[in-house]
Amino acid sequence: MLSIQDFLTNPEFVEWVKNPTKQLDDYWTKWIKANPDQLSTLKLAREFLMRVQYNEIRADEGTKEQILTDLLKTPSRKSDSSSTKVLPLAQPNKKTNYFNLSQLHRIAAILILGLGLAWLLIPSEFFDISQTHLDEIATLTKFTQPGEKLRLTLKDGTKIWMNAATEIQFPERFDTLERRIVLTGEAYFEVAKDSVRPFIVETNGLSTTALGTSFNITTKNEGRIYVSLLSGKVKISSTSDQEDIFLDPGKELRYSTNDRKLQVRAFDIDQVMAWKEGNLVFEDATLLSVVKQLEDWYGVKIQIENGERIRWKYSAEYKNQTLEDVLNSLSYIQQFEYSLDGKQVKFKF
C-alpha cells in the first residue's frame, strides 16, 4: 500500500494535481483502475495538496516598471557602470534639495557624506559595500613550488589538488554566469555542481568546460595538454576552429599545442591520478621527461653529463619514496652514476 507521502513525493502526482494534462489524466485514471484499493489515500493526498496555500507577495505598484526602465536606459557597461548601481541607502525617488529635506533625510545625507569621506580615507578592503557586481574583480594566483603540493577549495565548493610546479589563476569571486580559471602545470578538479554556471579551465588555447565532474588536466608534457575525465561530462574547445569535443568518463584527450592535433583515448586512472596519492609514476619515459618529473616532484636541479646518446623508455612506480631511494633504484637499473649535493643532482653517463 502506498502512503500519502508516497503520492506527495511523486513529481507526476503533484504535476497532475496542479497542472493536469491529457497524458497525466490518462495515466492516473488507468492507475486508479488498476489499484482501486488505494483510491482513498490518493484522494486524501490530492485534497491536501489542493489545500496548500501560500500568502501572496507582490512588489509595490510601479516597481516592476521602474526596474525595467532602469535596465533599458542603461548604456553599455563600458561607459559607466557605477551610475547604474543604486546603493540601498541613497535611493532618491523625487528630485530633492538639501534645504527642504526632513530631519531624517539630513541625517542620512550627513551619513552618506561621512561614508564617502571614509571611503576615500580608509583602505578599500574595509568597504565591501563599494564593490558593485561589475567592478573589476581581483584575480588571485595560487602556485606550488617544485616539490610541493597543495589542495584548495574554491568558494563555490570546487576542490582542486595542485601538483608540484603548478599555477592557477582565478577571480576572487566568480560572477553569476560562469566560473573560469587558468591553469599551467597539473591539477585534479572535483567541480561543485552548478548547472547554471559552467566551470571552465583554460590551458594554453584549450578550454575545458564542466558542470559538475572530476577530471585531471596536465600541461607538464612539453607542447601537450592532457585532459582526463574521471566522472561526469566535460566539453573541450580549442581556440582554433575545431569542433567541440565531449569526453566520456574513462577517456582522455591529448592535445598538441604545436600542430593543434587532438586524440581521444582510454587512460589508466591509477597512473594519471598517481601524483595525487603521492606516487611517482614513469611510463615509457625518456631521460628528459624523467629529469623534468624528478625536478618538479622533489624540487631539485638535475644536470646531465654525457647524456646525448642516451635513449630511455623507463617505466616504474615509486610510492612515497625519498629522492635518494628513487635515484638509487634508477641509477642501478639504467646503469649510470649520480651525485646528490643539497638541491643539486648530477647524472653521469
Binding site: 512588489a59 526596474i67 535596465l71 542603461t74 557597461r77 540601498p88 554566469l177
Partner: peptide
Amino acid sequence: AMVKDGIHEVFFDLREL
C-alpha cells in the same frame, strides 16, 4: 529593498554579459 537591488543586478548581468 534587497530584492529590488538583487533583481536589478540579475537582469543587468543578463543584459550586459
